[in-house]
Nucleic acid binder design. Structure first.
Lengths: 185, 185
DNA sequence: GGTCCCATGTAAACCGTTACATGATTAC
DNA sequence: GTAATCATGTAACGGTTTACATGGGACC
């Protein structure tokens, strides 16, 4: 598996980055589909360096703050390309605690179920708004982002996918909430 | 968190089950949104018994095969109800390795990207078919499953949600694949 | 001087998968 | 008899989160 390995190599295949920069990328749009904490990233960077897939320069910020700027090696580039070509089977399970609760809806009364769904609908709607603002900011900044040849195309694709995923969720929540509310007690 | 704890308590709140039965449930429709292997389930059952949320009877199958049939206790029922009422914030990240690769589309050439998307489209389309067959089987077996008051309503909801989730993914894949194929080299 | 952000690490605990291990029952 | 399924467990490993721990830089 070691997906984090490839996530880091993929990012470093675009530009040189510090561990801190990588952490920030996982808090941005990419974080909709993959993320890791800095406590996992720093040891992985150390390991990838030992394996020869990446290298670092130490740069001085200000007076004496040392930071490690990582670059991908030729071996690292080959490793990333091999991973990108690999077609894995799709996972059986995509974990979703809300849907687990939904499976147990017969253990809730009508009000409890309606409250749960209303809350989830509100949260997911807020998320759609947030994502649409991000997409707006991206296309403002780089109007060519929707083109295959833009360096931002991957960024554009994950945002559009995240938006459609959340909108689909919202539509299903609205439909199901109505069904719960209009059914006889 | 301990979501597996609640998944097991939720299942046992519906009916008594063995560890083996619980394992099977995670391979069924519920497995679209939560699952665990038997190697995780048996230790969790032991722990929940020690915590007083469940109990078991030993039943003899055939001549001497002993099986543990677990039942939820009053404390377990209260624990499940408290969890079902809890409104958690939605997770920032839903891990999806294919979308991680998509984010790195600028590291692929046009053919590699088209191949990757075509494969994913095929796999997701097969999954939609499989899920629709399951929904068909469910509504054949219990035509009242779409009603809030059916014991199968939770089962019906997870299936319809899984189908819509996968269909949304398929539509986005088709749209994006077309965009990749029709763009200039 | 304080607050927020930049920057890097380790340790412990927890969650999850793969592999190891065993044996009975059912249906053909 | 033999294969598939029922049934239960443990051990080792790997991935992920939370907490611990430290210090510099930029801005007000």
């Amino acid at each position: 598996m070691r997906v984090l390995k490839y996530a880091i190599l993929g990012l470093l295949d675009q530009r040189e980055l510090t561990g801190y920069d990588i952490t920030k990328h996982f808090k941005d749009s990419l974080g909709q589909f993959w993320s890791a904490k800095h406590s996992q990233i720093y040891p992985e960077l150390k390991r990838l360096t030992e394996e020869g897939f990446i290298e670092f320069d130490i740069r001085i910020q200000g007076k004496k703050l040392e930071k490690k700027v990582y670059q991908i090696t030729a071996a690292g580039k080959e490793e990333v390309r091999q991973w990108l070509r690999t077609k894995d089977p799709i996972p059986e399970t995509t974990k979703d605690e809300f849907m687990l609760k939904t499976f147990f809806i017969s253990s809730m009364n009508k009000k409890e179920a309606a409250d749960l769904f209303a809350h989830q609908l509100l949260e997911r709607t807020k998320k759609v708004d947030m994502l649409e603002q991000k997409l707006h900011a991206l296309t403002e900044e780089d109007p060519s982002a929707e083109s295959l040849h833009s360096a931002q195309f991957g960024h554009y694709l994950v945002l559009t996918r995240a938006i459609e995923r959340e909108k689909g969720y919202v539509r299903w929540l609205q439909k199901t909430l109505k069904r719960i509310e209009t059914s006889a007690v």
